[in-house]
């Protein structure tokens, strides 16, 4: 298939950046989106130009490294997938594809389509863990956990930290990310113990890092490659009020 690409190119965080147009003539519908970009980069390299820079690693939808804003949607025109799992059969011959980086104050552009998501690590460092030292754990079956809670916790824990929720949100809010982590841990007896401190610290950090505020539009849920539910945000709210009052 033939494609027109309109890709955001930006040398470094401080330069202005602009869209550059490219054309590709022979793309297999069975190749993945990133393989299509590989082809583009091969062409650019052979012409002596600099390839388009973007984060990617596992290419199986789990590491969370890749994240491109394609035709107005994070991870492109399919649901429940990351860009690396997006296949070109989702596009039509002759399509124009606009590719932009995640846009958020908390995720500054490093180059082209690569952004700095350090803010997510900082959020986890603020309490997104259970304070237990190695070697001090009781037998794994000593605390039974209701299956329904274990399952809900797993639903939330499936977050891959790609940042699509922030990218999709019109307010660049990180509530789904924080909500998922708070839910994952607070739903389990092991994580419940320090749930108050966790939620207070993580919310304070989230505000400090310059994410926007949740207006419950649901864009994050619609674009989350792991299908993490908006109910996690409500749970975050509940946990926060419980910890505050």
């Amino acid at each position: 298939m033939k494609l027109k690409l309109k890709i955001w190119r930006q040398k470094d965080p401080h330069s202005r950046g602009k869209f550059v147009n490219y054309r590709l003539n022979d793309i297999s519908a069975d190749s993945s989106f990133l393989e299509m970009l590989d082809v583009l980069n091969e062409e650019l390299i052979s012409k002596g130009e600099e390839p388009v820079v973007y984060d990617h690693d596992c290419r199986e939808g789990i590491c969370g490294a890749c994240g491109l804003y394609i035709n107005g949607r994070p991870h492109g025109p399919d649901s429940l997938i990351t860009v690396c799992q997006l296949h070109m059969r989702k596009f039509k011959n002759g399509d124009t594809i606009v590719i932009e980086p995640w846009r958020a104050r908390a995720f500054p552009v490093i180059r082209d389509l690569m952004v700095d998501r350090d803010a997510f690590d900082k959020l986890i460092q603020e309490g997104g863990y259970v304070s237990v030292n190695t070697g001090s754990a009781p037998d794994a079956n000593s605390i039974p956990v209701k299956k329904v809670y274990a399952d809900l916790s797993m639903d939330a824990a499936a977050c891959i930290g790609c940042g699509a929720c922030v990218a999709a949100c019109k307010n660049a809010s990180a509530m789904l990310f924080v909500g998922a982590k708070v839910s994952h841990l607070t739903l389990l007896p092991q994580g419940k113990v320090e749930s108050n401190e966790r939620v207070r610290d993580m919310v304070a950090k989230m505000d400090e890092l310059g994410f926007g505020n949740c207006t419950n539009t649901g864009a994050c849920e619609a674009e989350c490659p792991k299908g993490i539910k908006l109910t996690n945000i409500a749970r975050l709210n509940r946990e926060y009020y419980r910890a505050t009052f």
Binding site: V130, G135, A140, N141, A150, D151, S153, Q190
Partner: peptide, 22 residues
């Protein structure tokens, strides 16, 4: 065996039976 204990204590949501065990 210690690994499983450690990971459960960290909040790894392993699959469980209806009785609450792993």
């Amino acid at each position: 065996n210690e690994i499983i204990d450690q990971c459960v204590a960290q909040g790894v949501p392993f699959a469980r039976e209806y009785g609450g065990t792993l």
